[in-house]
Each structure stands twice: as structure tokens, then as C-alpha cells.
């Protein structure tokens, strides 16, 4: 397993059913001298899904940004460990992060956006695979349309197409259901569950009640 990680290639959850866990060790977050949460400890293992809930401003996005390594916690640490050897793995080779701002450029077409994001995240893809992923999120025929002329829901779908492109195993998604229609919500829920069942790990925030959840499903309520 070590060799796979050090080879510098992204690890595909579907191909390598490795077992790993994300450990949150007494995390605290303080913003603008307001304490959002403190002493948060949690063990998440591969195959599970965590839904972070809480009112607006309760620190959901801050928690996700801390987990993704974008923000340092005020206290505590986040570790990604493989369960067999309990060695620490580099987070950025395992992580797929999708923030509320999805990183889609409005001036580029859907295909250009995805091919850039794939080469950035070392998920080498052919054009036909990108077209298939766009078809999977219901954007067949919109491959060459600049994203500024797509609707908000369609722009969200362009970003979600990355989840169909040989993604790394740990997904951290901030409000992934925003602007999606009911059919898109169902499809995304199914995809998330499939990913968990294949040994992936999903952490997401949403205000929407999930109708479909994997066997190992946890919710975390912040701000209570």
C-alpha cells in the first residue's frame, strides 16, 4: 500500500479497496474571536459517510475547510491513516474537495473546465471519458457551451462531473446539492452511496434530508 501512495498517482477507490481512516483529534475552530466548535473528536473509516449539519454560521464550512487542509484548526489535528499499518498518508493525493465555489471558470466550456481540473488533480482523462462524465450528469450536448451561459444547476453539474472521472477516495463536498433539481439530487445521492460502498469516504454538508444513505452513516450537528 505504501508503494501505491508514494508512486504519486491518485488512488482510485474502485480499483484499490484499501482501508483507511480520517481521525479528527480534539479539533477547535475560532473565527473572529467566536468559538465555532471545540474538542471535536471523530474517527471516520473508509466506506462511511458523514453529514455535517447545523444552522447558518455554525462552522460547517470551516470544519470542512479544516479537514481539506485549507485552513489550520485553532487546536487539534486531522490525520489520514491507513488502518493496516497506521501510517500517515498524504491527504492531498486522496482528496477530492468541492467547496461552495466549485472552481468552475465561467469563461471556459464544460469540457475545458473538466480537462483542466483533471490534469491539475492528476486524473488523466481522454476527451471521450470527459464527455461520458458530462453525459452522466445530464449535460450531453452542453460540452462546448461556455459555463456562463449555463444555469446555476447546470454549472453545479459540471463540477459534479468530476465525481464520475476516476476520482480519489476521500470526498469533501460543501453543499453539493445546491441548485440541483430533484432528479439530480436523487442521482447524486445514489452516486455518493455507491462510492461509499466501494470503499470511499464522503463528508458533506447539506440542509437537505438525505433519502438514501450508506450502511455506515453518521451525522454531526454543530452549533447546538
Amino acid at each position: 500500500m505504501e508503494q501505491i501512495i508514494h508512486a504519486g498517482k491518485p488512488i482510485n477507490a474502485c480499483e484499490v479497496p484499501i482501508s483507511y481512516g480520517l481521525k479528527l483529534d480534539t479539533l477547535s475552530c475560532e473565527r473572529d474571536s467566536r468559538l465555532l466548535f471545540e474538542h471535536l473528536s471523530l474517527d471516520l473509516s473508509s466506506g462511511s459517510m458523514l453529514q455535517v449539519m447545523g444552522p447558518n454560521g455554525s462552522g460547517k464550512t470551516s470544519l470542512l475547510r479544516i479537514l481539506a487542509g485549507l485552513m489550520p484548526p485553532s487546536e487539534g489535528a486531522v490525520r489520514l491513516e491507513s488502518n493496516s499499518g497506521s501510517s500517515v498518508m498524504p491527504l492531498n493525493q486522496m482528496l477530492l474537495w468541492m467547496g461552495y465555489a466549485t472552481g468552475i471558470k465561467m469563461l471556459l466550456t464544460a469540457e475545458e473546465n473538466l480537462s483542466w481540473l483533471c490534469s491539475l488533480h492528476q486524473q488523466p482523462q481522454s476527451q471521450s471519458q470527459i464527455w461520458q462524465a458530462l453525459a452522466a450528469v445530464g449535460l450531453r450536448g452542453f460540452e462546448d457551451v461556455p459555463c456562463y451561459s449555463l444555469s446555476a444547476g447546470q454549472q453545479r453539474r459540471v463540477a459534479l462531473a468530476r465525481l464520475y472521472l476516476n476520482p480519489p477516495p476521500l470526498w469533501i463536498l460543501d453543499e453539493p446539492f445546491t441548485a440541483l433539481d430533484p432528479q439530480g439530487v436523487t442521482q447524486l445521492e445514489q452516486h455518493l452511496v455507491r462510492h461509499c460502498e466501494a470503499g470511499g469516504l464522503v463528508i458533506l454538508t447539506t440542509h437537505h434530508t438525505l433519502t438514501l444513505t450508506p450502511a455506515r452513516f453518521t451525522t454531526l450537528a454543530l452549533g447546538s
Binding site: 487542509g69 485549507l70 493525493q93 465555489a101 472552481g103 468552475i104 481540473l117 491539475l120 492528476q122
Partner: peptide, 22 residues
């Protein structure tokens, strides 16, 4: 600015590429 606002920079920062090289 635009890369910051639309989340592109977040993607750069979480990727396994060296941010300084990007």
C-alpha cells in the same frame, strides 16, 4: 481575484501539485 472568487485557487491549494510551481 477571479480564481479566488470562483474557488479555482482552493482547487490549486488542495491538489498534490506544488502551489509555487502553479
Amino acid at each position: 481575484r477571479s480564481d479566488f472568487e470562483d474557488g479555482s485557487l482552493e482547487q490549486w491549494a488542495v491538489s498534490s501539485r506544488a502551489l509555487s510551481w502553479l
